[in-house]
Amino acid sequence: MGLEDIYTELVSEHSRNPEHRHALPGATCSLKGHNPSCGDEITLQLKVKDGVVEDAAFTGVGCAISQASTDMMVDLIRGKRTEEARALAQKFIGMIKGEITDEAELEDLDEALSLQGVSHMPARVKCAVLAWHTLDEALKEQGK
């Protein structure tokens, strides 16, 4: 596993200039995610209306992998139904854990598919899945 498989153009771009890293006015829910071992810390904000994630954004600090992963996730889930967004989160986590490897099945992760290489780097798995776990938790709360 070479560095270029992890720090791809796409990951570098998203981590240097995360489009969705800002506070979200009118958010209906806000949840913190935290990796105590490395200090990655994000707050994910969602605006959910009629079962649809109308908008999302995040704030916080973290490594390139966690920041890029979060930014790509927000890109992906905007406009999706909540159950669809949760299914994507679970699919992404499955990919990073190495449980889902079928390219066709992973296709709808879109840009986030570029993080698949992290599944071979146990030390960085937590960085990649932080935002997606946080999303899953947030939407679970919404569903209640």
């Binding site: 070479g2 560095l3 992890i6 720090y7 240097r16 490395c38 200090g39 990655d40 600090v61 973290g62 490594c63 390139a64 992998i65 920041q67 780097m121 030390a123 960085r124 960085c127």
Partner: peptide, 14 residues
Amino acid sequence: KDVHPHDVATILDS
């Protein structure tokens, strides 16, 4: 500068 320590460690590790 600009780089999170975890990324630094991964790059040094390589």
